[in-house]
Every structure is written in C-alpha cells, then in structure tokens.
Design a protein around this nucleic acid. Structure first.
Lengths: 148, 148
DNA sequence: TCTTGATAGTTACATTTTCAACGGTTACAT
DNA sequence: ATGTAACCGTTGAAAATGTAACTATCAAGA
C-alpha cells in the first residue's frame, strides 16, 4: 500500500497555499516591506476599522504573539495607533492612521488585481468549481464564527 | 475600496492548508514523533523507493536544508540509510530500512483513512468540484514536472 | 475588602525555518 | 593538466515562530 504524496490533499493544499502566498506577497513585500502576519493584521484593520489585538487574532487565525509582534511593527511604521480602552483597560483599540489608510488604499487595488487576474486565468468554470469546493471545506473545518 | 480577508484566495488557502495539515499530523506526530518535513520526506521515500536528497527536495517542494535536516532525523531513527553513489560521489542514494518500511506500512493506511473520511464528509459533488478546482490551479501554478 | 479565577497583551526562551557560505566533487573548456 | 563554473549536500548564524510564563486588569463571590 503506497501513498502518492502529490495526490494527498493536505500536501496539495500546503503547496498551493505556499505558491499563492508567495505570489501575493510580492506586492506588499517589495513595495512596503510587510511580512505576511503584518499584511494580514493590516488588511483586517483596513477592512473592519478599529479592532483589538484579540479580535485580530481571532479573525486572522494567527496566534496572539504573532499578532502582538505584527502590531508592534505596524506601529513603528506609524500605520496604526493604539488607544487603551477606558472601559476595560486591559485592551487597546487599534486603528489605522491616515498614513496607514493611504497605504491601504494603494495596496489593496494591487492585491485585488492580482487575485482577479488569477481567477480569470483559471476560467469561469474552474474557478466556480474551486469556490464551491473551498466553501464546502471551510464549512466543515472552520469554526462557524470565523470570517463573519 | 476594501478587501475582505476571508474571501481573499491566498488567505483562504493558507487557513485551510494549516487546518488540514494540523489534522493530518495528529497521526504521524503523536504516534511516531515525526515533524511535517520528516513526514514528507518519509512519505516520498516510501512512495518512490531510493532517492537523492535533491530529488526529495524537488518533489516535496521543500528547501534543501529542510530536507537535509529531515533526512538526518530519520537516519537517527534508523528509518533510512544513505549510500554514496559511486558513479557521482557528490550525492547519496537514500533508502528506507526494513524498520522504516514497517513504519510506513503502518502509518500510511491511517493517513489514507483520514483523507477518505474527510472526502466522504465533503460529499461527492463537493469533492468533485474541489478536485477540479485544485487541478486547474496546479496546472497554472506548479512546474509541469512536479508531481509527475 | 480579600481571594480566586479569568482575560488582554507582552516578554523570555526553545524550536524551526531561512539565508549565506562552505567543502567536496564533477564537467568542461582552455 | 589547469582553471572555472556548476552541482550536491551540510553547516552556522539570523530571523521567524511557537510555548509558557508573566504583568496588569477585571469580575464575582465569600
């Protein structure tokens, strides 16, 4: 009995995830020097507005230490500010600065173009199948609150 | 203009890849103490028989240093042996030992059961769509020799 | 008030991964 | 032969990640 690695689903996902991410990272990596965790936290802040570190951690499925370090780096870049919540002083409300928003508005269209390009290269039938399959997997394996 | 992270394809792939891998690793992790790179190299050796480190690196899409260390760990476990190729003494031919093969024969069925279980939970229509989408993506983004 | 336990977030430490350089070998042109 | 470049695989150091412990704050009950 032999297992064919290139047909093994977890491996296929890892390989594709790595390839797609590497491809996507070109923009935020070279233009803005962001790491992947930084990009994720940043994208989430741009999408949702003010958040706490725990919120970012939850929605981005990154460990809180990773988030903590990403936030620190973005703060050094002056792309976000934190403000201790006076109602509960354990947490801080994190918001993009004007400078951060400007970068977001420049970066996001690039990322979206890239994604559109990829999907169009796939063709509508294949991409439809892909989305269907991904959605089904996510429904099975991801906590329901994620991505909501 | 705002990007919705949970709909962004590279992010979705990373999240799912992470989840599936974590799930799959339970078997080789807890039972045999293998890391992910070790599992990959091991699976490939079981599948293809004798290989060189470069070959493993190529087919597993892992960096050669990762492969080098994985091989070292598996050698310590006495699951494989190396033999310098006398035709080209730069490379070594790597082969599973009897003990390694035995572990392979015990581990692989567990992994396959796990994968089957996952696919059956998806349902035949969804999994069909998923495979179609994955195959299309792989055709676009992976070097043609990979996985052949 | 005082204790206990939970939560938000950071920090220290260990492990893993990446990057650059290296040693040894082969290929090939001069 | 000799020099040069390429290749296989390993190693050391730097960077990123994960794990566990920690600080500070809050919540709830005795």
């Amino acid at each position: 009995m032999t297992l064919v690695l290139e047909e093994f689903l977890p491996y296929r996902f890892n390989r594709l995830a790595e390839t797609l991410s590497k491809n996507a990272s070109k923009a935020y990596q070279s233009e803005y020097g962001l790491t992947r965790p930084e990009w994720r936290a940043f994208a989430l802040l741009g999408q949702k507005g003010t958040m706490t570190a725990t919120g970012i951690s939850h929605f981005s499925t990154m460990h809180k230490t990773k988030v903590s370090r990403a936030i620190y780096a973005l703060e050094q870049k002056r792309w976000l500010v934190r403000e201790v919540d006076e109602g509960d002083r354990r947490m801080a409300r994190i918001t993009l600065t004007a400078q951060g928003k400007k970068a977001y508005d420049r970066l996001v269209p690039m990322m979206q173009r890239m994604e559109k390009e990829m999907i169009s290269r796939l063709g509508s039938e294949n991409s439809k199948a892909l989305f269907k399959g991904l959605a089904a997997l996510e429904a099975l394996y991801l906590e329901p609150e994620n991505g909501k």
